[in-house]
Design a protein around this nucleic acid. Structure first.
Lengths: 358, 358
DNA sequence: TTGTAAGCGTTATCAC
DNA sequence: GTGATAACGCTTACAA
């Protein structure tokens, strides 16, 4: 068990000072050619690599990004992580992951844990419970401690930080317009409770599309489902709810669902009720998951481009981190000027047309 | 922007020494009641939290686990991560994630990166390219540096470490026996190239089941597919391959596929060729993904219990890490004794019966 | 009961 | 050219 060698050991072995070794290895040319050669050779032989922790302590930066998400077993989120990881790695950063499991307290604890020196900045998507409580003190505190945050997808106006969102509103408008343009007269919306911002925006998009086409939204055509029903465990309940909904609205000829599971389940129910898709009922879902491609028929979706969101978020964060580098002059800058500087990047959605629409 | 307070600042503010503050906060009773109160109050007010990096440097342990996996946008792997995270968090560890993207060099680089002090131990699943090259020096070096590794799912005999695997062999035997017991006479196997250990084991299980039932394996009933076909991008090629396979083996009445995508695609093709499932052809897949539940018909699968694998792996690793704590006596212990001490935990598979089998 | 100092592994700023 | 020293934030003998 040969522990990693340190500068100190090399120094002792070669009978020079630690600082000489350090300089030699960083190719400082104040060091004599021969000593440098000798030291570098020795270091290579013993496979010397500087200790990250020591560097972090010294430089007061860890070169790692904290990712805080509600759930990892979720196609969208893992796609975002992949995007973050790619950019982070390319720019010399590592990523550390915390899961809130949609719980406020886990989010807070995880955040505090990581904020104590483990990371340089956060990329996060807010947990449902936090959105419900509307308690954002942990984000604000973290930011006020000088740790930048980039929020994605589930964001919130109350916190001043960079954000990456998908154009939920516009994406929904387009989806519903597509249904309208292909002849749907009674378009149902299957959505979540309003406190999840994306659910709200997608609902608004639905309403706007109807309005612009001079169609009256009917309350009976809107099904607001409890979030817990989005879990795989409650598939049968979800199915029942949607079946009842269909039965009490026999004229439905189009469905816009705010997530993949709702959409796929709606198709399942529709088929069970002997509707043909897309002839009798067309369906569009909001998401970009695996189910859509393999569903029968394959599902037309509004794509979220998770990976791109992750990449953008990582760039935003790292840009800010490296900008702060120069800007260590702390007090000099007018805070207001900085505050107004936060960007919100909007990723355009695309409509991926498959077989569930005409 | 109020930076986090340090012991030093508190000490200066309260006009005591740093060590006094440190001791007061750790409730050392060598400290006078009043000073302790005062210090604790002050610390709480300023929300003092010890700096993780400094602790890591001092204690020579980071309390974080490095996870190294080939791919994150993959239901199985994200399930494992969830399991690891749950246990890690419960036991006071964080997780840092590296993705190899199935590439040998990315695996090596990521590993070296994290091994330089960032983590206490690894939990990993080997990349395909590494399996192909059979170059495991990076694992061995890491271990010889005193950094323990736990491998899961894609493991390899050549490396001495704890392992968590699913019983690929037995799971496959059971699956194929199920097909046999429900009347299948010509059971096809759709598998990958042999260098991925799990593919090999599942193939062996298939052969064993046939053998035990005195059925002759036929080469024509085995389809070995290139791995790249498991990517969503090549869905159509995959479909073609399988369709050709079906066409040249018209008597197939059962299919065992070593992963979800192959199984689902096989069903798609079978239906396209006007076979009824499960009446004409029964299908079983090896996996525990989302597609299986939602496929038409829903797919009977051999479940891998990813989360449980992750939990076990995390326990194994942390147990070893905390065992090493006492055991800092390094040289004293006979290395051979330690080596033989590595555990391989086998997670039993289960057969989840759905509608693709009788 | 409290303070001093060393040390974890680096780098940077001084001296010589 | 090279070496000593301080510093990053913390804990812990050892002194006082």
């Amino acid at each position: 068990m040969k522990r990693k060698v340190t500068l100190k050991q090399i120094a002792k072995e070669l009978d020079v000072s630690i600082s000489t070794v350090s300089r030699a290895l960083s190719n400082s040319k104040e060091i004599g050619e021969e000593t440098r050669q000798k030291i570098q050779a020795f270091a290579k032989f013993y496979n010397y690599k500087p200790n990250n922790i020591a560097l972090s302590l010294k430089n007061r930066k860890t070169k790692t990004i904290g990712i805080l998400i509600p759930e990892i077993v979720h196609h969208f989120f893992s796609t975002v992580i992949r995007g973050i990881e790619i950019v982070a790695n390319k720019r010399g950063y590592n990523v550390i992951i915390g899961l809130s499991n949609e719980s406020f307290s886990k989010e807070v604890i995880n955040m505090e844990m990581l904020a104590n020196g483990s990371i340089d900045g956060f990329i996060l998507s807010i947990s449902k419970e936090t959105l419900l409580k509307q308690d954002y003190h942990h984000f604000k505190e973290t930011i006020s401690q000088g740790i930048p945050i980039v929020m994605f997808d589930r964001v919130v106006n109350e916190v001043d930080c960079d954000k990456v969102i998908v154009d939920d509103f516009k994406g929904s408008v387009n989806a519903v317009k597509k249904l309208i343009s292909t002849g749907c007269k009674n378009i149902a919306l299957i959505t979540t409770m309003d406190y999840v911002s994306v659910g709200k925006l997608r609902t608004q998009g639905y309403l706007r599309a109807l309005q612009e086409s001079h169609m009256n939204p009917k309350a009976s055509l809107i099904l607001k489902l409890d979030d817990s029903l989005a879990l795989e465990e409650h598939l049968d309940i979800l199915e029942n709810e949607i079946e009842q909904f269909f039965n009490s609205n026999t004229k439905i000829d189009g469905v816009f669902a705010v997530n993949e599971l709702y959409a796929v389940t709606a198709m399942k129910v529709a088929r069970k009720l002997n509707f043909n898709i897309p002839e009798d009922i067309q369906v569009i879902g909001f998401t970009d998951g695996v189910l859509s491609k393999h569903a029968r028929p394959s599902l037309t979706t509004v794509s979220q481009h998770g990976q791109k969101m992750g990449e953008q978020a990582a760039h935003l964060l790292i840009d800010r981190l490296e900008l702060d580098d120069d800007d260590e002059s702390d007090t000099y800058i007018d805070e207001n000027e900085i505050d107004s500087d936060f960007k919100t990047v909007v990723i355009e959605t695309g409509l991926i047309e498959r077989d569930s629409t005409k």
